[in-house]
Design a protein around this nucleic acid. Structure first.
Lengths: 331, 331
DNA sequence: CTGAAAGCGCTTACAG
DNA sequence: CTGAAAGCGCTTACAG
């Protein structure tokens, strides 16, 4: 059996109340002499505080649960880093739960795990909550925030990169370098993808380029989306000069398939991406990319959760920079 | 305030005992009529079970804590998948804690979080525990297991790929293809790295190639290790024909730096790696790699934790296959 | 089928 | 400075 404060009380001939006060260092409520005895006994018994009991009696928790959509989303690493950094500064514990790839059942199970433990807050990373899960989350009354996803309705707060600008400025970037046949590839049909598409269209329009629906290929940000798009757009002949991948993986898919078909990047075709994780620096050619501030998204998410009491959650759209690599060129 | 079973009891004019039995579906201990009333009241009150209280009173936990060394280790994703799969089958909850990159303080904090919650088991992924943290973990009496790391001493159980064979067979693979000047790059000084080095040396010896200490460059499995090694071994002229990177990142570092110096892979030099994560298929050239069974490591780790009672933990060394990509050739 | 009671490990007014 | 007591939300023998 694990030792409890009762065991310490018995061993030191003190009450559990006094032991508790000493262990929690409630200065002024105990004598040095008792303190020494208690600490010695605790040490000898190998005492471990039972946080579960503490949380029950104090009705508080110092735990934030982070629910992540999947382990396949490599940008989540940076968001996690940001969350951890702020949590560490504020002496909070963070537990992570993986909710699979849009799997409603696993998503629900991870919500249950977090909610039934009465965590102090929940951060959802890149999770598209379906209706009933969102209801469940809201009903719990636990403060929450959505990162790297943009749910307009239902009044949930979210923090993400400005997806409209992502679409707009990437398109503009290629236009400024002489491209006019530009494809947008691998974005999904959620707010994230549709905002990017809107930005793409507006950038074309403002530069007097007519929108060609055949060049906006939606998907789910996957490597395969890039492969598919390249097959479609590069055969029987190159129908575009520039492509924007909805993620780094999409861009790499495009480039690999371009090579497969005998085209060079950026000599024959320019390719850029919209995430800018570390892989863009490690791949060759180095990939031109809009670098999303993922770590900052994580930090702000955690900070905002801590300020719950002061004001209602507010959504934030963050800005970004475009890093010019070796996968694009002026034509 | 959140609703409790006491609220339900009041509303239904039943005792908390009966309410508890109904909510836990202890068949035979309640009438259909009461059950209906209770479920209705629970629904109306938005009742949420308080798992913290349940764990306290039943003195059990259905939570396994997984402590991961860092978000930079990309193979951890597959291990996580394996762990989740088995946990899901067994109706267990898994919480993940990130412990930084060999940071003793964060490592300790994550251990505290897990231990003070009396989780039913702890899985350490790619974590090198220092002495006092290991003591702390063992003292807690919570079952634990180490994945993808090999601590010989202190009787901890671990599951990992056979690192000796990894070193041996990768070296042999290159020797069979005519290479005799072979370098091993980027492995660390822990059991993992030293076992690989031992396998490398034995493979050389068994093939009558003398060991050259200048070709065994240790490191910490990083991209930079690959860059550094290539600078050292490729200038002023190529001093090796084949290299084995201790991780996919090390191999990519070598290849990128080779390109930088004007060498082609595999025409001028062959490079292979010892992880085999997805990036080896996405990079070009496709990287020849010993594919570690990471997902299997995760599954077995979780399974073994579940069998704690039956027999003491046992260490396992798993086998692997080598996938021939485009980054190596016969010479 | 149901309830009263004890208890999980801890904290904290209240009283001295 | 210390202790007795109540209570956090729940479960479960025990008794009926």
């Amino acid at each position: 059996m694990k030792a409890t404060i009762k065991d310490i009380a018995k061993k030191t001939n003190l009450s559990v109340a006094t032991v508790s006060r000493i262990l929690n260092n409630k200065t002024g409520y105990f004598s040095e002499k008792s303190a020494t005895k208690v600490h010695k006994a605790a040490e000898e018994l190998g005492y471990q505080k039972n946080t579960t009991a503490v949380e029950l009696v104090t009705q508080t928790s110092k735990v934030v649960a982070v629910i992540i959509s999947s382990t396949k989303t490599n940008f989540a690493d940076q968001i996690i880093d940001g969350i951890q950094e702020v949590a560490f500064e504020n002496n909070l514990n963070v537990i992570f739960l993986y909710a699979g790839e849009n799997d409603e059942e696993i998503q629900y199970k991870s919500l249950v795990t977090a909610i039934e433990r009465s965590v102090m807050g929940i951060i959802m990373v890149a999770v598209e909550l379906n209706g009933s899960n969102l209801d469940y989350l809201q009903q719990s009354r636990i403060p929450y925030i959505l990162l790297s996803t943009a749910h307009g309705p239902k009044g949930s707060a979210f923090i993400t990169t400005d997806n409209y600008q992502l679409g707009y400025r990437a398109t503009e970037f290629l236009i400024e370098r002489g491209h006019r046949k530009i494809s947008l590839v691998g974005n999904d049909l959620s707010d994230t993808g549709t905002e990017r598409l809107r930005g793409y269209k507006d950038a074309l329009k403002n530069n007097h380029i007519s929108f060609n629906p055949g060049l906006a290929l939606m998907g789910d940000f996957s490597y395969e989306d890039g492969i598919t798009a390249a097959k479609k757009l590069f055969q029987p002949k190159l129908r575009v000069t520039g492509l924007i991948g909805g993620s780094d993986m999409v861009a790499i898919g495009i480039i690999n398939q371009a090579k497969e078909l005998g085209f060079s990047v950026p000599e024959d075709v320019s390719v850029m991406s919209l995430d800018g994780t570390n892989i863009t620096n490690i791949y060759r050619p180095i990939i031109t990319s809009a670098i999303q501030p993922f770590k900052e998204i994580g930090k702000r998410g955690m900070q905002q959760l801590l300020n719950t009491d002061e004001r209602p959650h507010q959504s934030q759209l963050l800005t970004f920079n475009i890093n010019e690599g070796e996968s694009t060129r002026r034509i």
